[in-house]
Computed example of a mutant assay.
Amino acid sequence: MTNHFGSADYWDARYRAGGTSGAGSYGRLADYKAALINGVIEMNGIAHVADFGCGDGNLLSMLRPSAYTGLDVSDTVIARCVERFPEHVFLPFTRAAELRPADLCLSIDVIYHLTEPEVFAAYMAELFAHATRLVVIYASNMDQDWPAPHVRHRRFTNHVTSHLPAWRLCAHLPNPYPYDPASPDDTSFADFFVYARARTRCVLPLPMA
């Protein structure tokens, strides 16, 4: 009998063991992501950001939202973020229905960790349902096998086109640090994808490294 890999169990166990959200939440990749997200927040007058997969909060420490709600599958990391960032709101994904609408919903380094098809579909529905204006995704966008059990690459843009027709892709911003197996901690297979609701204006910062 094949053991079923559970993405939520994996991440909570990882955080309980003292692990972090991964190399992409630190160093130059985190600097790059924070700069672009802060640019989107500032240039579009974003008041409330909802982060679907806030992780250990290191990226949040670099962001400048007026109001922020972080969601995660790990109760362990939610408790840590509540203590570290008392000015913000944190919820487990099981309480996503309590999330008030957000001008901008973020999905940063999450989609390719949703190994179960049903979890991926439910996540995408919640991510877009709670956004009133913009959704910013940082993820891979390819159908490709990967040796790590907690990684499942998907061409998620096809899913958005098929299941979320009220949204349009405003921009695909290639990563200035494309994946290099010789330097996995400082490079990434993820790019930025910015979506806007129909008839919603979206202003983007210039590409930056």
Rank of each mutant, 00 (worst) to 15 (best):
Y195R: 06
H150L: 03
T20P: 01
P149R: 09
G55S: 00
S183M: 12
M124T: 07
S74E: 09
L204D: 12
I41F: 06
T2K: 10
I111V: 14
A139G: 01
L206S: 09
T76S: 11
F85L: 13
P174T: 12
H88R: 11
V77P: 01
Y179K: 07
D185I: 04
R28M: 12
E126K: 09
C81K: 01
A196H: 07
P207K: 05
A34K: 01
C202E: 05
A35T: 15
P92D: 13
N44R: 05
L71S: 02
A171C: 02
V40H: 03
P165V: 09
V203K: 04
R100M: 10
E83N: 09
Y32S: 04
R197D: 10
H130V: 11
A198L: 13
F90Y: 02
P181V: 05
D31A: 15
Y179W: 13
C105F: 00
L91M: 14
A171T: 08
A35K: 12
L164M: 10
Y123D: 03
H172V: 00
V73F: 10
P101F: 08
I111F: 08
L91Q: 07
E42Q: 12
S7W: 04
Y32F: 13
V136E: 02
A122Q: 12
S74G: 01
F128H: 02
S66Y: 08
W146G: 00
N141L: 06
R155H: 08
H163G: 03
P181R: 14
A34L: 00
T2Q: 14
S162N: 15
A129L: 11
I108G: 00
H163R: 15
N44H: 13
V49Q: 05
I108K: 00
A196N: 11
P92C: 08
V49L: 12
D185T: 10
I78P: 06
G57N: 03
A79T: 13
M43Q: 15
N3T: 04
L206P: 08
F85W: 13
Y195L: 05
A121T: 12
L59D: 00
L59A: 10
A35V: 09
Q144P: 00
I41E: 04
A171D: 04
D185W: 10
D143P: 00
R84T: 09
L173I: 15
A67M: 10
L206I: 06
S107Q: 06
L59I: 07
R16C: 09
M208Q: 14
E116Y: 06
H153W: 11
R100L: 11
T157H: 07
E87R: 15
F128I: 06
P65L: 12
V203I: 06
R14D: 03
P65T: 02
H150C: 07
L169N: 01
Y15D: 10
R133S: 07
G57W: 02
F120N: 05
G39I: 07
W146L: 06
L91A: 11
G39R: 06
A8S: 15
F90S: 02
D75S: 15
N38R: 03
L127G: 02
A148G: 04
Y32L: 14
T69G: 06
A13Q: 14
T76K: 05
C202T: 04
P205Y: 02
M142V: 15
A125E: 15
V40S: 09
L134C: 04
L173C: 03
H153R: 04
F5K: 01
S7K: 05
E98C: 11
F156L: 04
T2I: 04
F93P: 07
R199H: 10
L104W: 07
R199P: 00
L173R: 08
M1V: 13
